[in-house]
Design a protein around this nucleic acid. Structure first.
Length: 568
RNA sequence: GCGCCUGUAGCUCAGUUGGACAGAGCAACUGCCUUCUAAGCAGUAGGCCAGAGGUUCGAAUCCUCUCAGGCGCACCA
């Protein structure tokens, strides 16, 4: 919708002899009175051309009107805006294209096949996923879908912290629980993991190994317990995520980075390039060189690596694997790490703008407006699994995507469960289901002979008793003259713009809002006009319109990772 | 003390990367089911965009300061 305006304005300016034409910015006005698209080019040219904006606007308009164009109206307004209104045939033409190409109509190639790596969730495998991880998972998943639709080659990755102190502590917790179960009176470790899952794993251990490790000190069998607990936890993580509808292309183990020497190599590389130095018996990364506040220790004076050391190796690996852009999705409480990771990537030669961090804010869990306490210490927290079981994955995902990711989110479990208008998921899904229902009716009434699926073209059985349609071109879309029909088409074309914005800003929530707006227009249309009527020509045209809406709804829901149900 | 994020209707939040009179949902009130799904629709009401300066044709949006809330500032993981 913007392209035609840009083209027309550029041509006009060229034939007016304007050189150095700046970027022609086009907005979609909020107010219908300002047309379908508007440009501020006359305002922007006022200074360089030393002319009043209104005069420039007048000249541009006159020029455009001299040549064929898709506009019904072009007028100057306000301080120097130029407002464009398209003729209906423009919209009918676009609708035809949409119906012909279906989902391909929206396939953009912004990414040009560039490789993007998105790392998200990356929860420690020491406890179940909580609701905050769920939000990160929903955002990451939608973002990956978005980028893939935009023509990027996307790899989804989960980084598994299986090498540090915490995983050992998990092993020790399970070990202790196991010993206690066998009657061994042993104090639970100070910072141990106290959740029920620890007990569950120790029970599984006992089922498998019996009392084989009874009274054997942790030094003697700790590795067995740690490995066992880790395996169980990772399996649980993976299972929960896949039930949530989220899959990863790769699970990168931190331990593996150590085992194959990647950490050592990365640090060697830094040393060789003078980016690491020894001080006070420790090895430091010169991160201040790349904008960090202070240099960071990577090897402690006791010879142990810091957690940051493996992060360096990990991010170096990402670069070595040839990604053009690296996106990390973190909990907002990790924002302090951005400068140092950015420093790492810069040190290895990635330009600044190719590393992006998306911070996902805390989720506050509520029940009927009252906060649900979440405390790891007491072992009392709501897991993602519980939320899924209680409200369902689709609802949870949609709600996670109704906010900007860096904005706090209140998640009220009771409200989310309600099948009412308080719940925006249903509003959008309902629009889709309603259209499916219309198609089922149309089949029943022998208006069309296909299933109500989106993919096959509409083939009416009769048109004035002269046989059926073979293609979308046989449908007279110009019969869609109602204001709200044109408004629907306009909205559908806007999808492309919303999509582009969502991709460049890395903000999937824009799709969520768009879908609600499109659904609103459809519901309104549905209540005002009947799709199936005695007038076969109008019926067919309206069915086509409905189908287009359905395609767009499905397109958006697919990006969010939310189902488009045919019945509700 | 330093840094990051947030502050928009009673509540929860959008706001097209600086555009025209500030938007939606919920909650409140009034209507609409013999006809394609009422998980819906139509309408009413609701605002000092935290505050003060600045930048310019134009600011919720950019800059500075103030206030309020959250988070982060390890040879922890």
């Amino acid at each position: 919708m913007k392209d035609e305006v840009i083209k027309a304005v550029r041509k006009a300016l060229e034939s007016l002899g304007v050189t150095n034409i700046p970027d022609i910015e086009v907005d979609i006005p909020k107010d219908e009175a300002h047309g379908d698209a508007a440009t501020t080019i006359a305002l922007n040219l006022a200074k360089p051309l030393k002319k009043a904006p209104k005069i420039i606007a007048g000249e541009i308009i006159a020029k455009i009107k001299e040549t064929p164009n898709p506009f019904l109206k072009i007028e100057a307004a306000g301080a120097g805006f130029i407002n464009f209104t398209y003729r209906n045939d423009y919209y009918h033409g676009k609708l035809g294209q949409l119906l012909e190409k279906e989902h391909d109509f929206f396939r953009a190639d912004i990414g040009e096949g560039k490789k993007v790596q998105v790392e998200f969730v990356s929860a420690n495998p020491t406890g179940p996923l909580h609701i905050g991880h769920g939000r990160g998972a929903a955002v990451g998943n939608a973002l990956c879908n978005l980028l893939r639709s935009a023509g990027y080659e996307v790899e989804r990755e989960f980084y598994v912290n299986d090498a540090g102190m915490q995983i050992k502590l998990l092993g020790l917790s399970v070990y202790t629980s196991y010993q206690q179960m066998l009657g061994n009176d042993m104090p639970f470790p100070e910072n141990g993991y106290k959740g029920d899952y620890v007990k569950d794993i120790s029970v599984e251990m006992k089922d498998e190994a019996g009392d084989k490790y009874h009274n054997i000190p942790f030094e003697g069998c700790g590795d067995v317990f740690t490995a066992f607990a880790y395996k169980k936890m990772l399996a649980a993580l993976s299972r929960d995520l896949s039930q949530f509808g989220i899959g990863f292309d790769r699970w990168q183990s931190e331990k593996e980075l150590y085992d194959k020497g990647a950490v050592k190599d990365a640090l060697e590389h830094l040393k060789k390039n003078g980016l690491a130095y020894e001080k006070d018996g420790a090895l430091w990364f010169r991160s201040t060189e790349f904008g960090d506040d202070k240099d960071r220790v990577v090897v402690k004076n006791d010879g142990e690596f810091t957690y940051f050391a493996s992060d360096i190796a990990y991010h170096k690996e990402k670069l070595d694997r040839g990604f053009d852009t690296i996106i990390d999705i973190w909990g907002a409480d990790h924002h302090g790490y951005i400068p140092r990771i950015r420093a790492v990537l810069k040190a290895f030669g990635l330009s600044e703008e190719k590393f992006k961090v998306i911070l996902v804010q805390i989720v506050s869990l509520l029940r009927e407006g009252k906060p649900v306490q979440m405390s790891k210490r007491s072992g009392e927290f709501i897991t993602l699994r519980e939320v899924m079981d209680e409200v369902g994955a689709d609802i949870a995902k949609f709600i996670f995507l109704t906010r900007r990711s860096d904005s706090h989110l209140d998640f009220d479990i009771e409200v989310a469960k309600r099948e009412s208008s308080e719940n925006p998921v249903f509003y959008v899904q309902y629009a889709f289901a309603r259209i499916s229902s219309i198609f089922r009716q149309a089949v029943e009434r022998k208006i069309i002979n296909i299933e109500h699926k989106i993919n096959p073209p509409i083939r009416p059985l009769e048109k004035g008793g002269k046989g059926g349609f073979e293609s979308i071109h046989d449908i007279d879309l110009t019969l869609l003259k109602e204001g709200d029909e044109i408004a629907l088409v306009k909205k559908m074309l806007l999808y492309t713009l919303v999509f582009d914005g969502a991709v460049t800003a890395l903000e999937p929530h824009r799709i969520t809002y768009y879908l609600q707006e499109l659904a609103r227009l459809f519901h309104s249309y549905y209540n005002r006009h009947r799709v199936l009527s005695d007038d076969m020509d109008i019926t067919t045209a309206r069915l086509a319109l409905c189908k287009a809406v359905q395609i767009v709804l499905e397109e958006g829901l697919n990006i969010l990772g939310v189902k488009a149900p045919e019945r509700m």
